[in-house]
Design a protein around this nucleic acid. Structure first.
Lengths: 113, 113
DNA sequence: CAGTAAGTTAAGTGCTAACTTAAACAGCGT
DNA sequence: ACGCTGTTTAAGTTAGCACTTAACTTACTG
């Protein structure tokens, strides 16, 4: 099922990054928050709440920790879409790296000439 | 390719409805706008612009008309997701109809008893 | 060319969503 | 009970988006 809440949740780049962090295995809220330089802990907590209410992550409480993991089975076509987006990102990064390598070569060539 | 612009475009229910209108065959901007009771022409025009800039619709100008149609081939996994959402909607409607029929029966039964 | 039809762009408004900091809550060790 | 760690909730600010009305463009028609 892909409902409005899930789509809204996934439309946010920040939440997609969070989702990717808890995609493979679960992570404590604090560990998720620690991965972001540019945003506060509460902001991350709020995003996790949105993701949870959209059914995209599952929360497990243990002591004073709360662990989150992606609820991939519930996401239907969204899961495929996200993985596709992330692999596209990697492709772009790789292309960029090659391009830069090309520029480096050119620079060398120019210096060599 | 599924980029941020496309995802944002599709996350809006209004734009999804527009997209569905031009999904099978092209429609003039005015014909699209005419389908909506609760929104002005310019609003629809703005949505069409967003969809166009996201690459989700294609514009064809002819005389004083502008025809739009969904650019399904460019949407990658989004196309499947949308069609899935729409078929889910139909399923829900059907379920609702059956449910109402059930209630009607119950009412009859109650009256009969 | 004047008039009109089809549509977009401009300008302004109100609502919502993401973020902030400060405060509160929950669980555990002492 | 007290304090510390992990995390959420509360309150407030700000930026952006969907919408509106008004003004503009473009193309056809007499």
């Amino acid at each position: 099922m892909v409902d409005q809440a899930a789509l809204d949740a996934v439309a946010s780049p920040r939440r997609r990054r969070i989702l990717r962090l808890v995609w493979e295995d679960e992570l404590a809220a604090g560990d998720v928050a620690a991965r972001f330089e540019d945003v506060s802990w509460p902001a991350v907590s709020q995003h996790l709440k949105v993701l949870k209410e959209a059914g995209l992550v599952i929360e497990r409480r243990e002591g004073r920790h709360r662990f989150y993991r992606a609820n991939r089975s519930s996401m239907g076509p969204l899961a495929a879409m996200l993985e596709r987006m992330w692999s596209d990102d990697l492709d772009r990064l790789a292309a960029l790296a090659e391009e830069e390598a090309g520029i480096a070569e050119d620079t060398q060539d120019a210096a060599g000439a």
